Amino acid sequence: MPKTSKASATEHMTLEGYEGHFTELDTGYTVAFESYSSDADLADYFKGLPDDRCQCPHWGYVFSGKVMFKTADGDETFEAGDAYHVGPGHTPVLYEGTEVVEFSPTKELQQTIDVVTKNMEAFG
């Protein structure tokens, strides 16, 4: 059975206000251990995706803090101790002091990351 942890993750990303540790499992899913050290509404980074929203579903657990997902049907906030599922068609709002683990289908996640990375580069 495949497994990973924050310490054994194969990829790492650090940006202002964000730290992520990722492993692509051989099951077609990516596990992301993420922490946020500042508040951020990331909606602008998803422009160019259908409806300008993330089209990748995520299953996650909030260890500390909170995370909000904005959708066409309204906003949903998940706090420490909550397990969640968010379907396609959302943008995240991150809060300082939050730590989560998320499970996402790798193919859809990569399509999203490609657009987000392009937008981040354009914003400088």
Rank of each mutant, 00 (worst) to 15 (best):
P2T: 06
P2R: 01
P2N: 09
P2K: 03
K3D: 08
T4N: 11
T4W: 10
T10A: 14
H12W: 06
H12I: 07
T14R: 08
T14A: 11
E16M: 11
G17Q: 01
Y18A: 05
Y18C: 01
Y18E: 04
E19D: 14
E19G: 05
E19F: 01
G20Y: 07
G20M: 12
G20S: 13
H21C: 02
T23M: 09
T23W: 08
L25D: 02
T30Y: 01
T30A: 06
V31A: 06
V31G: 02
A32D: 09
E34Y: 00
E34S: 11
Y36L: 04
Y36G: 00
A40Y: 13
A40I: 06
D41Y: 09
D44I: 05
D44Q: 13
Y45G: 12
Y45N: 07
F46R: 03
F46P: 02
K47E: 10
K47L: 00
L49F: 09
P50L: 06
D52N: 15
D52L: 04
P57L: 08
H58E: 13
W59E: 06
F63K: 11
G65E: 03
G65S: 05
K66E: 15
F69P: 03
K70Q: 10
K70V: 12
T71V: 10
T71H: 12
A72C: 00
G74Y: 08
D75Y: 05
E76W: 02
E79I: 04
E79H: 08
G81N: 01
D82E: 04
D82N: 14
H85W: 12
H85I: 12
H85K: 10
P88C: 02
G89S: 02
H90T: 04
T91R: 07
P92S: 12
P92C: 01
Y95Q: 07
E96G: 12
E96Y: 02
G97W: 09
T98L: 10
T98S: 14
T98K: 09
V101L: 04
V101P: 05
E102V: 15
E102H: 09
F103I: 15
S104R: 06
P105E: 02
T106A: 08
T106D: 02
T106K: 03
T106Y: 04
E108A: 15
L109M: 13
L109C: 00
Q110W: 12
T112P: 01
I113S: 07
I113V: 14
D114I: 09
V115S: 04
V115R: 07
V115W: 03
M120I: 05
E121Y: 06
A122R: 14
A122T: 11
F123D: 07
F123K: 14
F123T: 07
F123N: 07
